[in-house]
């Protein structure tokens, strides 16, 4: 295809790699989609219980975590465009900022969960089981869905950490940044899922 390149260039199939990444993301959408299905069926069966149970979650903490994750998506997107403009230093700083924001999200999540557990609200806890069936379902779904999302945050952070080290070692460059772009896609998907989790668990009125 390319007629002007003089130096030996290793073949890279960016379009194929990106398509593969998107196909993987589709399976992730269906994975969480199944959980959203269970959630919506139970919510339609127990609307009052879900309303009462959701009052036990902190809207402030949920909103703060939403802002953190949205901002981390911004820093990730900017990290990629910085590298595409050839500004490696800025890209490294922005990737680092993304990791810091992701860690802050997890720390908030830790405080949130330990607060619930301290109050005796966790799966199979006697205090939770004493509540109505719909509330038990709500907290079961809450732990499974935000927990699975949390695991995705951890995986995303590990991935961006690898990308960061590759960028510093000049293995991801302005000319060859497909890996960073695909890691970015994964991180944005994690953000995307949280965009739906936030109103479904924290904002039931």
């Amino acid at each position: 295809m390319n007629d002007s390149t003089q130096t030996a260039v290793q073949h890279r199939d960016y379009a194929g790699a990106k398509l593969g990444m998107w196909l993987f993301l589709f399976t992730e959408i269906l994975l969480f989609g199944g959980l959203f299905l269970v959630y919506s069926v139970y919510r339609s069966m127990y609307p009052e219980d879900f309303h009462e149970a959701a009052a036990g979650l902190s809207v402030v903490l949920g909103t703060v975590n939403t802002v953190i994750l949205l901002t981390s998506s911004l820093t990730m997107a900017l990290a990629i465009s910085a590298l595409q403009r050839g500004n490696t230093r800025q890209s490294v700083l922005l990737q680092g900022a993304t990791i810091v924001l992701g860690l802050v999200f997890l720390v908030n999540k830790y405080f949130e969960w330990s607060g619930h557990i301290h109050e005796g609200i966790f799966p199979n806890a006697p205090e939770l089981l004493a509540r109505s069936h719909g509330q038990v379902q709500f907290y079961g779904l809450y732990y499974v869905m935000t927990g699975l999302h949390g695991l995705h945050v951890v995986a995303g952070l590990a991935l961006i950490g690898i990308m960061l080290s590759l960028t510093i070692r000049q293995r991801i460059t302005r000319e060859d940044n497909g890996k960073l772009e695909n890691a970015g896609l994964y991180w944005h998907l994690v953000d995307l899922i949280w965009i739906y989790l936030f109103p479904l668990f924290y904002l039931i009125t």
Partner: peptide
């Protein structure tokens, strides 16, 4: 009506993330 508006707004946000951040 609140569940509907919550999902509508979330979908608008998801659209922005997909369209611009996810390129």
């Amino acid at each position: 009506f609140s569940a509907f508006t919550a999902i509508a707004i979330a979908s608008a946000k998801a659209g922005l993330v997909l369209w611009y951040f996810m390129h």
